[in-house]
Every structure is written in C-alpha cells, then in structure tokens.
Computed example of a mutant assay.
Amino acid sequence: MDDIEQALGDYGRSRERTAQQAMLDLMALGCQTIALPPIDEQRRIGATMNAIGDQVAAFTALAEASGRVHAALSNALVAGVVGLNDPFTPGSPT
C-alpha cells in the first residue's frame, strides 16, 4: 500500500468515526466510468475553446494597448505637451 492509499484510508477511518458518510476507496474510484461525448464533438468543443482563448488574448492585448495610450495621453496632458482643445487628426504625428 503506498502513502496515498494509506492517507486516504486513514482519512476515511477518521471520517467514519465522526460522521456516517459513504466513502469511495481507491479501488472503487478507479472503477468509475466517465461518459465522454463522441470524438468529433470533443474536437468541436476543443476548437471552440481555442477560438475563445484567441478572443480573450486579442481583447487582453487591446486592453493593454488602451492602457498604454491612456497613460501616454495623461502624461502629455500633465506635461502640457497636448491640451484638451488641441485638434486631432487620425494618423497625424503627435
């Protein structure tokens, strides 16, 4: 019996003394069946999760870029480099 089985057995016995609850030992736990969807559906789920991860990464990059722009504009306002009423043309140098 390895250390994990011993620890789980000790834990189970201590729990039996304090409360009458059903316990699964390692053997019973290892015999449990886990239902999985068909492989094609698993692949679709994986592709969907990857697409969501890509969107999260893109939004994270956008949020970080927005934070840098905010900081730069705030610093420029405080330093007097730009004013609140200065004209702005997209694509023009700062």
Rank of each mutant, 00 (worst) to 15 (best):
D3F: 11
D3E: 15
D3W: 04
I4Q: 07
I4V: 13
A7K: 13
L8D: 07
D10A: 08
D10C: 11
Y11D: 02
S14H: 13
R15G: 00
R17G: 09
T18I: 05
A19T: 14
M23Y: 10
M23S: 01
M23P: 01
L24K: 13
D25K: 05
D25L: 03
M27N: 06
M27C: 02
A28M: 12
A28C: 05
A28H: 13
G30Q: 02
C31F: 06
Q32P: 01
I34Y: 07
I34H: 07
A35M: 08
A35H: 14
P37C: 03
P38W: 01
P38R: 05
I39C: 01
E41W: 10
E41A: 06
Q42H: 08
Q42W: 06
I45V: 14
I45Q: 07
I45C: 11
G46I: 04
G46P: 02
G46T: 07
G46Y: 04
M49Y: 07
N50P: 00
G53W: 14
D54I: 02
D54H: 09
D54E: 15
V56M: 13
A57M: 15
A57T: 14
A57Y: 07
F59P: 03
T60R: 13
A61F: 11
A61M: 10
A61R: 14
A63R: 07
E64C: 00
E64M: 07
A65H: 06
S66D: 11
G67E: 04
G67P: 02
R68G: 05
V69H: 07
V69A: 12
A71F: 14
A72P: 00
L73C: 03
L73M: 13
S74T: 14
S74R: 05
N75R: 01
A76C: 05
A76E: 01
L77H: 06
V78M: 05
V78Y: 05
V78G: 02
G80A: 02
G80P: 00
V81M: 03
V82K: 04
V82N: 04
V82M: 02
G83S: 12
G83W: 03
